[in-house]
Protein backbone atom coordinates (compact mmCIF):
# COMPACT_ATOMS: atom_id res chain seq x y z
CA UNK A 1 0.00 0.00 0.00
CA UNK A 2 2.82 2.36 0.92
CA UNK A 3 4.38 1.67 -2.50
CA UNK A 4 1.20 2.70 -4.27
CA UNK A 5 0.99 5.87 -2.18
CA UNK A 6 4.60 6.71 -3.02
CA UNK A 7 3.99 6.06 -6.70
CA UNK A 8 0.95 8.33 -6.81
CA UNK A 9 2.45 11.10 -4.65
CA UNK A 10 5.80 11.42 -6.43
CA UNK A 11 4.10 10.94 -9.79
CA UNK A 12 1.58 13.69 -9.07
CA UNK A 13 4.27 16.15 -7.95
CA UNK A 14 6.28 15.43 -11.12
CA UNK A 15 3.16 15.81 -13.24
CA UNK A 16 2.32 19.18 -11.69
CA UNK A 17 5.89 20.28 -12.47
CA UNK A 18 5.58 19.04 -16.04
CA UNK A 19 2.26 20.85 -16.55
CA UNK A 20 3.80 24.09 -15.27
CA UNK A 21 6.84 23.55 -17.51
CA UNK A 22 4.72 22.94 -20.62
CA UNK A 23 2.22 25.75 -20.18
CA UNK A 24 4.40 28.61 -18.92
CA UNK A 25 7.76 30.07 -19.85
CA UNK A 26 9.37 28.94 -16.59
CA UNK A 27 12.55 26.86 -16.87
CA UNK A 28 13.32 23.71 -14.85
CA UNK A 29 15.47 25.89 -12.58
CA UNK A 30 12.47 28.05 -11.70
CA UNK A 31 10.35 25.00 -11.03
CA UNK A 32 12.80 23.20 -8.73
CA UNK A 33 13.36 26.40 -6.71
CA UNK A 34 9.61 26.94 -6.55
CA UNK A 35 8.97 23.41 -5.31
CA UNK A 36 11.58 23.72 -2.56
CA UNK A 37 9.92 26.94 -1.40
CA UNK A 38 6.50 25.26 -1.54
CA UNK A 39 7.85 22.35 0.54
CA UNK A 40 9.17 24.77 3.16
CA UNK A 41 5.92 26.77 3.20
CA UNK A 42 3.78 23.62 3.54
CA UNK A 43 5.69 22.97 6.74
CA UNK A 44 4.40 26.14 8.39
CA UNK A 45 1.38 24.19 9.59
CA UNK A 46 3.21 20.83 9.44
CA UNK A 47 1.20 19.77 6.40
CA UNK A 48 4.18 17.99 4.88
CA UNK A 49 4.56 15.91 8.06
CA UNK A 50 1.10 14.50 7.42
CA UNK A 51 2.13 13.71 3.85
CA UNK A 52 5.24 11.92 5.16
CA UNK A 53 3.09 9.90 7.58
CA UNK A 54 0.71 8.94 4.81
CA UNK A 55 3.12 8.34 1.94
CA UNK A 56 6.10 6.87 3.79
CA UNK A 57 9.71 7.05 2.62
CA UNK A 58 8.66 7.92 -0.94
CA UNK A 59 7.83 11.42 0.32
CA UNK A 60 11.57 12.11 0.68
CA UNK A 61 12.22 11.54 -3.04
CA UNK A 62 10.84 14.78 -4.61
CA UNK A 63 12.71 18.04 -4.14
CA UNK A 64 9.87 19.44 -1.97
CA UNK A 65 11.18 17.29 0.89
CA UNK A 66 14.40 19.34 0.75
CA UNK A 67 12.51 22.40 2.00
CA UNK A 68 10.74 20.26 4.56
CA UNK A 69 14.03 18.84 5.87
CA UNK A 70 15.56 22.34 6.03
CA UNK A 71 12.70 23.57 8.24
CA UNK A 72 12.88 20.51 10.49
CA UNK A 73 16.64 20.76 10.87
CA UNK A 74 16.25 24.43 11.82
CA UNK A 75 13.54 23.57 14.35
CA UNK A 76 15.72 20.83 15.87
CA UNK A 77 18.50 23.40 16.27
CA UNK A 78 16.07 25.93 17.74
CA UNK A 79 14.91 23.47 20.39
CA UNK A 80 18.51 22.95 21.50
CA UNK A 81 20.02 26.43 21.29
CA UNK A 82 17.19 28.91 20.97
CA UNK A 83 16.79 31.33 18.10
CA UNK A 84 20.43 31.15 16.95
CA UNK A 85 19.95 27.40 16.59
CA UNK A 86 17.71 28.10 13.58
CA UNK A 87 20.84 28.90 11.63
CA UNK A 88 23.07 26.41 13.42
CA UNK A 89 20.76 23.51 12.73
CA UNK A 90 19.50 24.50 9.29
CA UNK A 91 21.51 21.79 7.49
CA UNK A 92 21.14 19.12 10.20
CA UNK A 93 19.05 16.79 8.06
CA UNK A 94 20.01 17.87 4.54
CA UNK A 95 23.76 17.84 5.17
CA UNK A 96 24.08 14.23 4.01
CA UNK A 97 22.42 15.03 0.69
CA UNK A 98 24.35 18.22 -0.03
CA UNK A 99 27.72 16.82 1.07
CA UNK A 100 27.26 13.67 -0.99
CA UNK A 101 26.29 15.67 -4.10
CA UNK A 102 29.43 17.77 -3.70
CA UNK A 103 31.57 14.69 -3.02
CA UNK A 104 30.32 12.73 -6.04
CA UNK A 105 30.55 15.79 -8.31
CA UNK A 106 34.08 16.36 -7.05
CA UNK A 107 35.19 12.81 -7.84
CA UNK A 108 33.32 12.27 -11.09
CA UNK A 109 34.18 15.63 -12.64
CA UNK A 110 37.85 14.76 -12.25
CA UNK A 111 37.41 11.23 -13.54
CA UNK A 112 35.09 11.77 -16.49
CA UNK A 113 35.08 14.10 -19.48
CA UNK A 114 31.89 15.64 -20.88
CA UNK A 115 30.29 13.80 -23.79
CA UNK A 116 28.29 15.31 -26.58
Amino acid sequence: MIYLNSFIFVGLISMIGQIILDNTKLTPGHITSMFVVVGALLDTFSLYDKVVDFVGPGAFVPITSFGHSLVHGALMGAEENGLIGVFGGMFNLTAAGISSVIFFTFIFSFLFNPRD
Binding site: I2, Y3, S6, F7, V10, G58, P62
Partner: peptide
Amino acid sequence: GGLLGVIGC
Protein backbone atom coordinates in the same frame (compact mmCIF):
# COMPACT_ATOMS: atom_id res chain seq x y z
CA GLY B 1 8.33 10.17 -11.05
CA GLY B 2 6.16 7.46 -9.57
CA LEU B 3 8.69 4.81 -10.49
CA LEU B 4 11.42 6.76 -8.71
CA GLY B 5 9.16 7.06 -5.66
CA VAL B 6 8.70 3.28 -5.61
CA ILE B 7 12.47 2.76 -6.04
CA GLY B 8 13.04 5.10 -3.08
CA CYS B 9 10.54 3.11 -1.03
